[in-house]
Design a binder for these strands. Structure first.
Lengths: 180, 180
DNA sequence: CCTATTTGATTGGTCGGCCAAGCAATGGGG
DNA sequence: CCCCATTGCTTGGCCGACCAATCAAATAGG
């Protein structure tokens, strides 16, 4: 209808400047938006591999560490136990992971990536490289490093804040200490 | 627990892998983690107000812009139409939002915040201020600005990349008085 | 030894969020 | 005037993610 002005605004010119986005104020909004876009981008890249966004986190950890207790996996990725359970059920059903009871502790489960899933390893790594490239496109190396540093600081800030109020245990995989 | 050595694998220190940073995808990981923590923090702060994380986005826009077409709202927040529909259904059921058919276009809906919801306005603003404070705790003003700038760049980068692959309109929610 | 607490994992419920289809109304072109 | 593409929104399905509550097993305490 009548010359959609919106598309025009977003069109290279209007969007390229994107002064509004930068000045938009709250970092919180920016985090939410960036995260959402990032997730969508991840979904696009991973879709062809048969993985849904978020699952690659688990798989990468499993590929990296071999058979692990589910509780270890939970602490490593920092997700809710129920979330991990359901994700693993789907991944198991898809043939990407295998779960077996831990003989030394009959309530625990050992999780490991299947051999079949190994084929995905290189693809997923490539996809993540692509995603990283898309994410950091237009940023210089120094900016990238700075962004990583700042995100790290924000992460620790949020983390301590949450630990204070929520009493969540949370091993926090690679998180807090050691800010280089 | 078993004698499971702490898996302080190479990952933790993003700075160490400066040259190969792109391969490991530290920024992508960081974005995901920070976003998740941030969302949890937002949920904590908003829970007492009866809002779920994400809803405040819609409400803030509605408070700010009065009655709007649903399609305008969708473009403004940049979410999927179906997502907005369901969120609005819940918000309406909760009494925060009112929807009425647009007389000038019988397939469209006009959405507006209810008077009752206005009471939440100041609370939500306060909660977001609190959230912002938690998020940026430990960062200096210059770092905060730099983070905002970098996130803006990442956002536009992801955005153009997504627009290339999938039909995209562009809303670029912007232009509101936001104290930082 | 037998009970309390803690730990490991699962289920149920709800919400945000996406995609893919599906209508209903609008409006442009033949 | 009618047909057809477009726009606006909704539904259904699925997945990630949270919380709360539950159950089973292991361990600490009396």
């Amino acid at each position: 209808m009548t010359a959609e002005p919106v598309q025009e605004s977003r069109a290279a010119s209007g969007c390229a400047a994107a002064p509004s986005a930068v000045l938009d104020g709250p970092v919180s909004h920016a985090i939410s938006r960036v995260s959402r876009l990032h997730r969508i981008a991840a979904g696009r890249v991973l879709r062809e591999l048969g993985l849904h966004p978020g699952q690659e986190f688990l798989m990468m950890h499993l590929w990296d560490s071999g058979a692990v207790r589910q509780s270890e996996l939970i602490k490593a990725v920092g997700l809710d136990p129920s979330t991990v359970t359901k994700m693993l059920q789907r991944l198991e059903h898809a043939g990407h992971v295998r779960r077996r009871p831990d003989p030394s502790d009959r309530r625990a489960s050992l999780v490991e990536a299947t051999d079949a899933s190994r084929g995905l390893l290189v693809e997923v790594r490539r996809a993540w490289g692509e995603l990283e490239r898309q994410t950091l496109e237009g940023l210089e190396a120094a900016e990238c490093a700075e962004l990583a540093r700042l995100l790290g600081k924000v992460e620790t800030a949020l983390w301590t804040e949450l630990a204070r109020g929520g009493g969540a245990d949370c091993g926090a995989a690679s998180g807090e200490p050691d800010p280089c």
